[in-house]
């Protein structure tokens, strides 16, 4: 589904990703872990199409198509979703109107008719139940005045509504208390199917107690220095990242 080959990316002349290789297949959950400043968030932004980064080498393929020529909106239309670490507040635009715009833009790109309002509302109610969200959410301005937990829940809610092929969760666990974490994890687990894939970007192992990954990768200094199964996450939890600092190659 997603294939990243020798990806180098820099911002304002500073190289942040230094040859990342990663392959994600349908049905898989990959966790990318690493210390602060290792390039985790850069990697997720680059996959989603943030234009502030210059790609100096390598490529990203999604379903055998080159992603790098596409804008963030076109990538979303192909089925890529990024859950933001810091979702942006948009006053004056309600969650409902935002989702309606988003869903219908995605449908338009696929040549489908807009979703009728009653179907949209029904789907929203169903997905909100999944995430223990109050229906007052729908009429609030997007992320405005939301607590950290509400923002993250709202991100997963959007993912549930948009049903992407590939969901990238950038530090979704940060700032969540254990109850909120459980709810978010439950939501993500319900969305797991054999056809979609998830990349979890996280600093801590605790999210992985709730969402079990198939693979764990350690990103350090802009490269994946170690890959393994979920045991690797436990090892990291115990020993920290320092033992990996020496280049593994």
């Amino acid at each position: 589904m997603l294939k990243i080959n020798n990806l180098h990316a820099s911002v304002e002349g500073t190289e942040i990703l230094r040859g990342v290789n990663l392959e994600v297949k349908p049905g898989e959950v990959h966790a990318i872990m690493g210390p602060n400043g290792s390039g985790k968030s850069t990697l997720s932004s680059v996959i989603a199409g943030r234009e502030d980064y210059e790609i100096t080498q390598g490529n990203i393929q999604f379903e055998k198509e080159d992603l790098l020529d596409l804008g963030p909106d076109e990538r979303a239309q192909k089925g890529i979703f990024l859950s933001f670490q810091y979702p942006v507040e948009i006053p004056g635009v309600t969650v409902t109107n935002f989702l309606k715009t988003s869903i219908n833009e995605l449908r338009k790109a696929r040549g489908e008719e807009p979703l009728p309002a009653n179907k949209l509302l029904k789907k929203m109610r169903e997905k909100m139940g999944l995430l223990d969200m109050d229906k007052s959410f729908l009429s609030r301005s997007l992320n405005e005045g939301f607590s950290g937990g509400e923002k993250k829940r709202n991100e997963i809610f959007q993912m549930a509504m948009l049903e992407p092929k590939l969901g990238i969760l950038d530090e979704t666990d940060s700032g969540l208390d254990i109850d909120a974490l459980r709810v978010v994890a439950k939501g993500v687990n319900t969305l797991r199917t054999k056809d979609n894939a998830i990349i979890l970007i996280t600093h801590y192992q605790r999210l992985l107690d709730h969402i079990e990954p198939d693979y764990v990768h350690v990103l350090s200094q802009g490269k994946i220095v170690k890959s393994g199964n979920k045991e690797l996450a436990l090892e990291l939890e115990e020993h920290g990242y320092d033992w990996l600092k020496e280049p593994a190659v």
């Binding site: 909106d73 948009i90 004056g92």
Partner: peptide, 20 residues
């Protein structure tokens, strides 16, 4: 960028932000 990752084209995303 946030709005565009939700499939909303640049022009519409810009308008949505200006509206907000």
């Amino acid at each position: 960028f946030y709005l565009m990752t939700r499939g909303i084209a640049r022009r519409e995303a810009q308008a949505l932000l200006l509206y907000a």
